[in-house]
């Protein structure tokens, strides 16, 4: 079957022959490898995308289910140059291996769009579904605390 949807603001078409995830289709068919596959069970957040305005794990979205929906991946976050969320992370040492980074960018962008001035606890609660194995989260928290201060 053919699934048509809006992907990062552009019409996209995918050919679906089995109950694969949106993540697989993004990575293997639509040449958007920014969303990462690290657990395939919604326990790490590396594959986070925005589906119809809400962040979800794209590994748990059946690709066949996104017909007529709108999907934004890390590749569709921002435009020219880094967004404030990305810049904050870059300048605070919040990236190491980077495998969790795209998911964190997607979730943090959603957080700051809804609440430009989150508290530390709100930052942590928003990112509770994004596992990072390298940083111990310290630099990630600091980067967003700093961004929250700058935007307040």
């Amino acid at each position: 079957m053919i699934v048509e949807f809006l992907l990062n603001g552009e019409p996209a078409t995918a050919r679906i022959v089995s109950p694969v995830s949106l993540l697989d289709v993004l990575r293997d068919q639509l040449e958007l490898p920014g969303s990462k596959n690290a657990c395939e069970q919604g326990e790490c957040g590396s594959c986070s995308v925005v589906l119809d305005g809400e962040i979800v794990c794209s590994c748990l979205v059946m690709a066949a289910d996104v017909g007529d929906s709108e999907v934004v991946t890390v590749e569709g976050i921002g435009g020219d140059g880094l967004t404030p969320v990305q810049r904050a992370m870059h300048h605070s040492g919040a990236v190491q291996c980077g495998f969790c980074t795209p998911g964190i960018v997607v979730v943090a962008a959603d957080l700051f769009a809804r609440n430009p001035n989150p508290t530390t606890l709100e930052i942590k609660e928003a990112l509770a579904g994004n596992i990072c194995r390298c940083t111990g989260y310290g630099a990630i928290i600091r980067s967003f605390e700093k961004l929250a201060r700058e935007t307040s």
Binding site: S18, S21, Q41, G42, C57, C59, L60, M62, D65
Partner: peptide, 19 residues
């Protein structure tokens, strides 16, 4: 929401062809 079914699919425990 897919949060249970897709785990089963991803882990190849189920393969629903009609959904």
């Amino acid at each position: 929401g897919g949060t249970d079914l897709m785990v089963e699919v991803n882990f190849r425990h189920r393969r629903p062809e009609h959904v």
